[in-house]
Amino acid sequence: MLIAHLSDPHLPTGPLAAAPATALHRAFARLLALEPRPACVVITGDLVEHGTPDEYALLLDILGLCPIPVHLAPGNHDGPRFTTELGGSRYLAGGSSSSYAVEYPSATVIVADSVIHGRAEGRLGDTQLAWIDETLGVRPDVPAFIAMHHPPVAVGIPFLDGMGLLDGPELGEIVARRGNVARVLAGHVHRTIAVPWAGTLASVAPATYRQTALRLHDAQPPGYLIEPATFLLHAPAGDGWATHSVAVSGAGAVLAY
C-alpha cells in the first residue's frame, strides 16, 4: 500500500489563484503517474487560503480529477466552512466530521482536527485524544497513520515551533503506548521534515506551492520562497515503512495528464 502525502495548497481565488492551483494540479498529475498508483492521498490541511465557498469550489474542481481516494484534514486557514463545504463527500470518508478513520486492509488512516479557530497553533483536546487512542486499539496489529495539520513535535524553526500542536506530549503518550503508529503525518511548516518521536516518525510534508525559508537562528518570520515542489510517498519496506520525496517541478517527471 502506497500513501501519497501532500500539504498546504493554500488555494485562493482571484488574480493570484493560478499559481497555487496549477501547483496542486501538477502534484496530482505526478502522483497519478506513479506505478503502482498510491492507494490513497492524504492532504494535511490549509487546503484553501481564506475559507471561502469560491476557494472550496476551486479545490473540489481539482480534486475531482483524482480517481483514487483522497482524505483531507483541516488547517488553520481552512476556516469553519471546512465541514460545510466538504461534509458528506468522499474527501471526509462520506461523513460530516473533520475527524474520521478509514480502514484499508494493510493500514488504518486516522484523520484528526488540530485547528483552534482564529489561532495559528493547534490542539486536539481530550475528547479527540481519547478517540485516537480507541481507534488505534481497534486493529492493534495493523499499521496506523495519524494525519493532522500541526506537527506534534518541534522541528527546529523557532517561529513555527511557536505555533505547533499544544497537546503534542499527550498524543505522544498514546502513540508510544499503542506502538502501531507507522507515521504521524503533518503539514503547516511548508518544508519536508522528519523527526523521530514517540517510537515512530513525525513526517511533515512540504507545501504544494511555496516553501518556508530555513530560518533556524531566531524566532523571526522566515518568509517564503519558490523551491522545487515535492510531495511525500509512504511505502512498505521490509518490516516497516519508507518515506520517499517525489519531485513534481524542476524535474523531468512523468505526468498522468
Rank of each mutant, 00 (worst) to 15 (best):
H25I: 00
P9K: 02
L160E: 07
A253E: 07
D141R: 15
S96A: 10
D133C: 12
A4T: 11
P196T: 05
V153Y: 01
H150F: 09
P38D: 09
G252F: 10
P74Q: 14
L232I: 02
S249P: 11
L165S: 08
V48N: 00
V184Y: 01
P9A: 10
H190P: 05
I116G: 03
R30E: 03
T13H: 08
A33M: 01
G179Q: 10
S97A: 15
L34C: 07
H149D: 14
A253F: 00
A247D: 13
L86G: 02
R37H: 13
N180G: 04
V138C: 09
A229V: 15
A251Q: 09
T44W: 04
G199F: 07
T200Q: 05
G168E: 01
T243L: 11
I146R: 01
M1E: 03
T135I: 13
L136I: 12
G95W: 15
A182V: 06
T84L: 15
G51V: 10
H25V: 01
A229T: 15
V142H: 08
I132L: 12
L63C: 03
P196Q: 10
E55K: 02
P158M: 08
P236W: 00
L225T: 12
V246D: 02
H217I: 06
L160D: 04
L232F: 01
A194K: 12
T230D: 12
P143R: 04
P196E: 11
L32T: 02
A19R: 15
V41L: 06
A253C: 03
A130W: 06
G87D: 09
G51Q: 10
G199W: 07
H77Q: 14
L166E: 13
L171W: 01
T192I: 09
H244Q: 12
S96G: 14
H234V: 03
L58T: 08
H190Y: 06
A147C: 13
P15Y: 01
G172A: 06
A73C: 15
S114N: 12
I62T: 00
E170L: 13
T208S: 07
H25G: 07
A182R: 00
D126S: 06
M163P: 12
C66P: 00
P140T: 10
L31C: 09
L31H: 00
A213M: 09
L171G: 00
D167W: 05
A176H: 12
A256C: 10
A57H: 12
L32D: 01
N180K: 05
